[in-house]
Write a protein that binds this DNA or RNA. Sequence first.
DNA 1: TCTGCACCTTCCCATCGTGGGAAGGTCAAG
DNA 2: CTTGACCTTCCCACGATGGGAAGGTGCAGA
Lengths: 131, 131
Amino acid sequence: MQIGQAAEATGVSAKMIRHYEAIGLVPPAGRRDSNYRDYGPDDLHRLGFIRRARNLGFSIEEIRDLLRLWGDRSRSSRDVKALALNHIAELDGKIRLLREMRATLSALAEACDGDHRPHCPIIASLAGESA
Amino acid sequence: MQIGQAAEATGVSAKMIRHYEAIGLVPPAGRRDSNYRDYGPDDLHRLGFIRRARNLGFSIEEIRDLLRLWGDRSRSSRDVKALALNHIAELDGKIRLLREMRATLSALAEACDGDHRPHCPIIASLAGESA
DNA sequence: TCTGCACCTTCCCATCGTGGGAAGGTCAAG
DNA sequence: CTTGACCTTCCCACGATGGGAAGGTGCAGA
């Protein structure tokens, strides 16, 4: 199976598959005589794993660890869970930041008339006016 | 006032001040005989505006629009509010995505024993096992 | 006056994940 | 034998930020 089909099948773009190979996240794909990369079921499985982990927001380095654990028969689920809880904490941090931004901005927008006049608490606040 | 003091005073790093100048977000700073950049109160005010907008998550391009509106005496607060509401929608989108990730991952982590054994629903889910 | 230190200058490179596109090779169908 | 769809490698871009090199400036103290 060539790279385009593997991309289609896994939802990972051909560009990214090559990239993941370049950074060692997936092993170098086998090659045909044409020098085209050749993918088998195991490769697709691994790419699907990566895509699902990306969809959960894991970074490439976190995924590297997850892949190592996936292939480690003597892993302990404790290690996996620790990785997951750590990532949840990262997500919580991002969510909190965004919610704070949203709350502040939303309060300013509420106070803004939104009419034809120039007066605007949003601009005033950004300009550093204490009001 | 030279760039380091302006950075200190506004909370925008000297690196970023030069960058903002390079991309035209702030006008080219005046120069002393030494070729050092020289900042006055208006410059500091503008940099503070930018920092506060960044803290609310506005992108550089959005800030470009905000700065234009700030300096436009004939602006309508409607335009500012529209920009803010649009940004709030962007924030909501990001928050929703992160919350979905968190919910999924959190459910998986709940189901994971976190002990010395290898069995782990987190890994199983990433591996595409339907469970 | 000389020296050292803290600051400034420009320039290039790195991050992270992803995409765009050029220049060229391969293969199957018409 | 041409056309078109695929593949290859290589370089560049984004957005926002930082690191660091190589060299100039300015001031304080010996």
